[in-house]
Design a binder for these strands. Structure first.
Lengths: 245, 245
DNA sequence: CGAGCTTTTGAATCGCCTCAAGGCCGGTGG
DNA sequence: CCACCGGCCTTGAGGCGATTCAAAAGCTCG
């Protein structure tokens, strides 16, 4: 049996034992497909399952009663979706497919069993969730304390960093299947202003963008503008319990 | 031995067994004191210990190279500080005492042992960290998609909600030992503008503020303005493993 | 009582928003 | 095969929210 995408993802941070791999793989239920634009679940829905992204992109978003939307996070291959709702019964945000997707389901109750049988995996889950918190810190700082151009630069760099961590390649061309509206809702700007900023950044030879690809032309300057810090490179597992089995 | 403040905090979400309580309490090392304004650690410092707030307020902050500051989180009694840095060796943010404080230290390695011995506690740690992620989602939404007055209203309400969850009391007067600069750095506004907004909100009889207390005069309207959602009331532990010992 | 914070207030400016209209491009149906 | 339609992108004009700079007026503590 070939490794599931979740195993591949977790294995990036830790050398999983065969037992651990089997344990994780056995949690994944049959995959399900969603077409681009579909809603996987909505804010407030009751969550009995978590999802693991097999293929495609999803984004979690939340709407204000004014109709405005904030995009909270992007989910790529190997990401666990819904963990942030595990402390509550209800989903804190909606999940929407940004491209066609394949996701595996993962029963929520199974998580408890995993915590007992595989403390090292529990530690890994905990660590990954902390990495995501740090990612949120960085975005908070970007939204709170930097202007439009820097916010966009930060967004492009952080998406690129995550994609590159998965692919292992360092390509200046990044596939970002988002409209200008989406970008705006992610960084707290209007679509119109995103358009103007992208034009400016193009004139300054920082990036180019067409359709769903963004090319990072001048990464050093993008990093300088946005004070981007790449967090996703390594994980400190020195405090983890030792593996079983 | 009386319950440590960390036990009290965790016990709010789960009925801890005596064994679990002992396990947690034994992790806490001798307390240490910090005066208001002191820095407990700085962005980039090597973290070998986590801290638990015994008394007082701390805030985690991060500085841009422009000198601007973003306050990322507030830490109250019972909060675990530094978990977000556990995935890495280095602290992602600085911690500063907002009042005089007493904190207990908690060796990072001990966390691994706890995960083995007490899977239910591991699940609880995981859940609490997810609650904090959701809190970050809410702040991200506030910073990205609402204007100044709503951001401040949101901040005041969320601090009040957390304080009330600890105290069990519902008092309109909330002690918030922060300057206008601090408030600005938390919600992404300048001190000057925070001042003007507070004056407006005072004129509209939404709040009053002097020194380090804020009085919430009209909570329904504050909630309406800011679309505040109180997340910290309950925890879903239905998926937790059963207790040992 | 003075030093050093915090707060208050004004004036000018800028970043971003809203409203609005038009252009592009791909897909669908006649 | 072309006409049309709906999403997306582009661009302009005007306005508002928030910033910067600046200066003065409390507070608090030694």
């Amino acid at each position: 049996m070939s490794d599931s995408c979740f195993v591949v993802r977790l294995n990036r941070y830790l050398d999983l034992t065969p037992t651990e791999k089997t344990a994780i793989a056995s949690l994944e239920r049959e995959p399900r497909e969603y077409a681009s634009g579909n809603t996987l679940w909505q804010e407030g829905d009751d969550l009995s399952e978590l999802l693991i992204v097999h293929q495609g992109w999803a984004l979690s978003e939340s709407r204000l009663s004014t109709g405005k939307r904030q995009i909270l996070r992007f989910h790529f291959s190997g990401d666990l979706i819904g963990a942030s709702g595990i402390a509550f019964r209800d989903a804190p945000s909606s999940i929407v497919a940004a491209t066609d997707m394949v996701v595996c389901r993962f029963p929520r109750r199974a998580l408890g069993e995993t915590f007992i049988q595989h403390p090292r995996l529990a530690a890994l889950f905990f660590s990954i969730s902390q990495m995501e918190s740090i990612d949120l810190y960085d975005r908070l700082r970007a939204l709170g304390r930097s202007e439009g151009k820097a916010r966009l630069a930060n967004l492009f760099l952080s998406i690129a960093a995550r994609m590159r961590a998965v692919s292992g390649q360092h390509n200046p061309v990044v596939r970002i299947p988002l409209t200008q509206s989406d970008l705006g809702d992610a960084v707290g700007l209007t679509q119109v202003h995103v358009n103007r900023l992208i034009r400016q950044m193009t004139e300054e030879k920082l990036i180019t963008r067409n359709r769903s690809t963004v090319t990072l032309l001048d990464e050093p300057r993008l990093i300088e503008i946005s004070r981007f810090i790449d967090r996703f490179s390594s994980l400190d597992s020195s405090w983890f319990p030792s593996p079983r089995g």
